[in-house]
Write a protein that binds this DNA or RNA. Sequence first.
DNA 1: ACGAGTAATGA
DNA 2: TCATTACT
Length: 835
Amino acid sequence: MKPLLYLLSVKYNGRDGKAHMYFYDEDTHTLVDVPDHTGHLPYLLTDLKPEELIAQYPDVFTHKGFNRLEVVEKYDALNDRWFLMTKVEALDPLSIGGTQKSIREILRGHAWEAKIKYHHCYIYDANLIPGMPYTLENGKPKLVDTKVPEEIEKLIRDLVKEKRDLAEYLSWAQILNAPIPRLRRVAIDIEVDSPPGIVPNPEKADRAVIAVSYYSDDRKGVLLLKRSNDIPKLEQNDAEITVFENEKELLQAAFKIMTSYPVVLTFNGDNFDLPYLLNRALKLGLREEEIPIEWSPRSDYAEIKGSIHIDLYKFFTNKSMRVYAFGNKYREGRTLDEVSMALLGIGKVKHEEAISEMTPERLVEYSLRDAELTYKLTSFNNDLVMKLIILMMRISKLPIEDLTRHNISAWIRNMLYYEHRQRGWLIPNLEDILRLKGQTSTKAIIKGKKYLGAIVINPKPGVYFNVVVVDFASLYPSVIKTWNLSYETVRCQHKECMENRVPGTNHWVCKKRRGLMSEIIGILRDLRVYVYKKGAKSSKNEEERQQYDVIQSALKVFLNASYGVFGSEAFPLYCPPVAESTTALGRYSILKTMQKAVEMGIPVLYGDTDSLFLWNPPQEKLEELLQNILNELQIDLSIDKEYLWVVFSKRKKNYLGLLKERKVDIKGLTGKKRNTPDYIKNLFNEIVEDLSEADNVSEFEKSVDKIRDLVFTAIQRLKKHEVPLDQLAFKVALTKPLKEYTKTTPQHVKAARQLLEYRSKLGISGNVEVGEIIAYVKTRNKDGVKAVQVARIDEVDNDKYIEIMRTTLQQILDALEIDFDDLLSGKVITLEKLV
DNA sequence: ACGAGTAATGA
DNA sequence: TCATTACT
């Protein structure tokens, strides 16, 4: 049997002017470079006939990139018609031109599909699916016909009755179920000899590279530059440590390691490690051919000749990955320490001394840890991240470099473009969608937003026992599926569809054609909810379960963003009525459900976007409700959580409850927020813990005494200055550079400025970076705040802290009808009013 | 370079 | 009242 070759990347190669496919050979663990076999060049489309082109735009034919013309039939979904267009094939219709205009510019106003990059164009037209296994036959890649597991096929057959639909579902299942290769890879990290406080500049590369560490599953080690005559003891478990007298030789050794792996991992290698190595090597007199790193200002990523470079910094900072794949476990993902601490439980090696002043032993330890963390971010949980990457490449049809560096809107864009090209549909221009479908008909509540969003039902304050939360499984994707929402079907051109209104808007939806977005998002939703989630639950095989779980997580990432992108101006298929209709139908669904519940005599306590809190619903009524909604709205409503009790305040998005499994669940309360001082957070948690032991009203009453004691002691300690400063610190992130706070000066900005001044007194230069978390305490000086680093305990403004305690605790106490001031004064409180 | 809604706080 | 932040 021929070895399986997994398509990882397609790149345009300037040297031979061809597209190259890069496959991972699972037998040899190497990269196979396959030059273009189709002769495809990218193209743009125009509505001009060839003779009009010749007459009006002769420049196109003399353009140096021009190749040929072809007339093709395309489907214009916006106007529901097929028509002839002229395909202008050219080497690089987007940008080649130099002083000359590019072909896209020459044809401005008559150009379609003119912004698609060469390699993406190639993938669409050669019908390639990145991440999938191929075999090579006479230099041509052939997709391997992998089988869908029987149980998956059965789940799909039970779900889909229409024959044509079935084929679509099965082909997606084939893509998702195809085997996933284990990529052989190495993580690289460099250290530079730069003075304390100075961030080395990769463009200048004027300081020596003192260490390059590498970490893989078969070898790890550090290449170290010898800087003094001390002979360091260099023993670090099983790492290889190589000392170089000469920096140039060190770099050459590093290059040799990098190119011996098909995949190289870095953390911020695009912006630091690789350009630094490149420029440093040039500076030390290496010739370009001797340096395997390529970096051009035009492409914003650093490439390694003959290998694939993945910069994990970009991937882990990606909001969709952070929130939906990694459950928001880390905040921003700006540092390796933050991400690895959250996902692996190990951080960087802590150090007081500057890198350049470390002993060789320390440097080795520090540097190797960075490479180790970088590698392990891709290997933890049985290579979870690598598997996710491969699966998301298959869904989006993006090469590995693009997938790992771009945000979700690019993934969804590329997925939809691919489907257009597959079907012979014309990809519409942004302006054309907007001209036909620009209007919105609802008004946002938040100033500056474009349309009305989700609905939040006013909570009924108080304590409630036996609360069941029901929610819609992926509400927005479901709405998009069942209501046929798509840019071409919402406000379609047919008169007869106009009566098919979207409730709460003045939009209508097409009844004659199936919407493309609706179809694709619908398939992905069904596969996630009814096939892979189910499969993951029912499968007896651990490995299989894990595989289905990765697949359903990958689908989740796409589904969760599938509505939002249509409301974003930056998305090339931006269509406000689609986004607006989605939220309108979401409101319609939740309100219908609420109405039904009330009709059935089930009290609704609260609801947010896609969930309802039901008070003590009898089992049979609950089941009736779920069934009724499924029949009426064709959206799955299911039980999400069950509480022994829930406490609501009068504020929305604020509640506290004890789950059936005796776990406390807190939402939105200040006591839980990151920026709240630890001292108050801890007090809050102690109170919550105390309450969590109560499961009836009388036990609640008993808790109150304890709560009073806790609050009293907390205030006494504060007044006696017994609370350490860091416990009192607010921790707030800078979201923009210090200079840009001109209109107002928030407290954390004041503190940041003090901090800067303080640092400069100590002789530390450098800046306060965007994203840096500033810790400050409230004080009784003019500014009202001081950065923790410069504050003293006796300066703390106790009254301010008591106020903060009051507002924080009031969120719980309000609902329990306990008054904070009564706690302070020691009055006796009963809870009889509660019942 | 995915959306809108809510709450809290300080200028 | 507006700006800023954090969170759902």
